[in-house]
């Protein structure tokens, strides 16, 4: 009984981590720097959703579409305003990483300034529990699992079957060669930031509905998304998805046997172990050759 409930819970949280991680990994693999400010895209999306739905009373579906487009554009904005000029000055990836943490803190504080620090909630009919014989789930949680799986499949198809996906993989593989053969890698960066941030936006909307809104949720989520990416292999989008579900499972089994206070400790232990013994992750690329 408990086992099924743990697996269901793992799938729910794993899906949210995966939405964050795959965008993070997509941006990392095409741009080769850690975009820790990715977490703020989740927060921006959840607050915009709150603003649109609760304050402006805009229709549910339109709110979702609006938020996703705005979050995607916010990703491009971050690249254009912060990272682009730094890259132009040939800043190292460490500088970009520090900048990304700065951006995360800056926007976290700006959200606190605009929306205040009080916890906000969105009431929804989707959060009424349905009881099955061996587990409990809400309609929203079913939507989270199903939508995430569909989106992750769509992302896979985008990467494998479309020209822009192929160009993204090419830039990720060999940026210099990509530019020699005339691929506009700036455009590829814009696409990766738009798509990555949009996926984070979807996670933001789900979190706004499923949990409560706090300006600091982004930091926690990007740490988990990053952990998922490392477990699965940061250069591999499918790997980061796999890693996120593994993290979800590990956390949920861990809190069943220990207590919920150990959730983050479990994640960090996993992160530590992978960084130490398998830094390229499960599906990652090792020295240019896929294992």
């Amino acid at each position: 009984m408990a086992l099924i409930q743990i697996i269901v819970n793992s799938l729910i949280i794993g899906s949210l981590y995966a939405l964050v991680a795959c965008g993070f990994s997509l941006i990392y693999s095409t741009n080769k720097f850690m975009h820790f400010a990715h977490g703020i895209s989740v927060v921006i999306a959840s607050y915009l959703f709150y603003l649109s739905l609760n304050t402006l009373k805009i229709n549910f579906i339109i709110s979702i579409l609006l938020v996703l487009i705005l979050t995607g554009l916010f990703g491009i904005f971050m690249y254009k305003v912060f990272y682009g000029p730094l890259q132009k000055r040939k800043s190292s990836n460490i500088v970009l990483l520090i900048a990304s943490v700065g951006i995360l803190i800056l926007f976290e504080n700006m959200i606190m300034l605009v929306f205040g620090t009080t916890v906000k909630t969105i009431n929804s009919d989707l959060t009424k529990s349905i009881e099955f014989s061996s587990f409990i789930i809400t309609p929203l949680q079913i939507i989270i699992i199903v939508t995430s799986l569909i989106l992750l499949l769509l992302l896979y198809l985008l990467m494998k079957k479309t020209k822009i996906g192929r160009n993204m993989r090419a830039v990720s593989d060999n940026k210099e060669l990509a530019s020699i053969i005339g691929i506009d890698y700036k455009k590829v960066s814009y696409y990766s930031f738009f798509i990555g941030s949009l996926l984070a936006g979807i996670a933001g909307i789900f979190i706004a509905l499923e949990q409560t809104l706090e300006p600091t949720i982004g930091t926690n989520l990007i740490v988990k998304g990053f952990t998922g990416s490392i477990i699965g292999g940061i250069t591999s989008v499918p790997g980061s998805i796999l890693g996120s579900y593994i993290l979800g499972i590990a956390e949920n089994f861990g809190i069943w046997y220990l207590s919920s206070g150990y959730k983050d400790a479990i994640a960090f232990t996993l992160l530590f172990l992978f960084l130490l013994f398998k830094p390229h992750g499960i599906l990652g690329i090792n020295k240019g050759i896929k294992k």
């Binding site: 192929r166 993989r169 060999n174 060669l177 691929i183």
Partner: peptide
């Protein structure tokens, strides 16, 4: 070459 792209993709790209 693009190591992790197929031979066909390597020819199609650009």
């Amino acid at each position: 070459n693009f190591n992790n792209l197929s031979v066909k993709e390597n020819l199609e790209i650009g």
